[in-house]
């Protein structure tokens, strides 16, 4: 009995193995070995930031493509693309590292709440319904679609300000939050030397007075920064200033002239002539400390 059992089970197993072997030989699909090589150097985050379905799709596209001009892994950045190009023998385009930047600084103090939203807690749905709980119909809704979209735990809604904050070390600039934000507040900007960068932290396109009334930190399109900029990096369009990250030389003059403190500087050392700047957080200038560097207080 035992013998029959062993023989029959072994027989089934052996028959199955033989059958599998035969079919796997017969139905073999040729896969370029370079695809798995490329896949090994990729970050394996499967975030889709490259525009392909996961790292496997990106690896296949890299092998297939004639050149790597349009292919870039935003998570791995230049170092990973270098490895990929070494495997494939194709030139990879040099890309500057970027990082997600939240262009809204309308925190609870700056942007008074005018009404109470009681619907589904989802930015995309809330944005389709109306302009938000405050007078600014451009600003952050604060329901955390960006937070939910992030695969890297790099963006979180600050419970105090109800604005998202990017953890720079974790951000891979995959662009998931950029797509998730229905208000187009988040932008991928050049990381800059020593992570120093200057940007207009507002997307409000209302006329100056309207914007100012809705939010004290809004860009009012006064063009002061545009005039101050010596490098032609700032353009005011639709009552909103925009700093071109490529042209900007990080001179910080625009930060000082902005009457609403809508222009933010990140990771700069404290200004020398100011004394009370030890309270400056590395992330962003707080409104109180920024006030000390405005021309009126000089």
């Amino acid at each position: 009995m035992i013998l029959i059992a062993i023989i029959s089970l072994g027989g089934i197993g052996a028959a199955g193995a033989a059958l599998l072997y035969a079919t796997s030989k017969k139905f073999e699909v040729y896969e370029d070995p370079r695809v798995s090589q490329v896949q090994e150097v990729l970050p394996a985050a499967n975030c889709g930031g490259c525009g392909f379905a996961g790292c496997a799709g990106f690896a296949a596209a890299c092998v297939k493509a004639d050149n790597l001009d349009n292919l870039n892994c935003p998570v791995g950045g230049a170092s990973v693309m270098e490895k990929v190009s070494a495997i494939l023998g194709k030139e990879a385009l040099k890309t500057e590292p970027t990082v997600a930047v939240v262009r809204c600084n309308g925190d609870c103090d700056a942007r008074p709440q005018l009404n109470q939203y009681d619907g589904v807690s989802n930015c995309a749905i809330a944005a389709a319904l109306y302009g938000g709980e405050t007078g600014c119909s451009f600003g952050c809704l604060g329901m955390g679609d960006c937070e939910a979209s992030c695969n890297f735990d790099a963006i979180h809604i600050n419970p105090v300000t109800r604005l998202p904050e990017v953890i720079e070390d974790k951000c891979t600039s995959c662009g998931a939050c950029v797509k998730a934000c229905p208000k187009n507040i988040i932008e991928l900007r050049k990381k800059g030397p020593k992570s120093r960068r200057i940007y207009v932290s507002c997307v409000n396109q209302d006329k100056g007075g309207v914007a100012r009334k809705a939010c004290t930190n809004a860009c009012i399109g006064c063009s002061k920064c545009e005039k101050e900029c010596a490098f032609d990096a700032i353009k005011v369009e639709n009552n909103l200033a925009y700093i071109d990250p490529v042209k900007c030389r990080l001179c910080r003059k625009c930060v000082v002239v902005c009457p609403t403190m809508a222009i933010h500087e990140l990771n700069f050392p404290p200004r020398k002539e100011k004394e009370a700047d030890s309270t400056v957080k590395p992330q962003k200038i707080q409104p109180e400390t920024a006030a000390t560097v405005t021309p009126e207080n000089k």
């Binding site: 029959i4 059992a5 029959s8 089970l9 199955g16 599998l20 079919t23 796997s24 139905f27 699909v29």
Partner: peptide, 30 residues
Amino acid sequence: PLGLGFMQTVSYILVIASLVQLVEIILKKV
């Protein structure tokens, strides 16, 4: 016929596992 009813579970698992593998290989090609 062999009187091996008690081997139901183990042989089923064996057959199902290899069957699914087989289907997967064929499907990948076809």
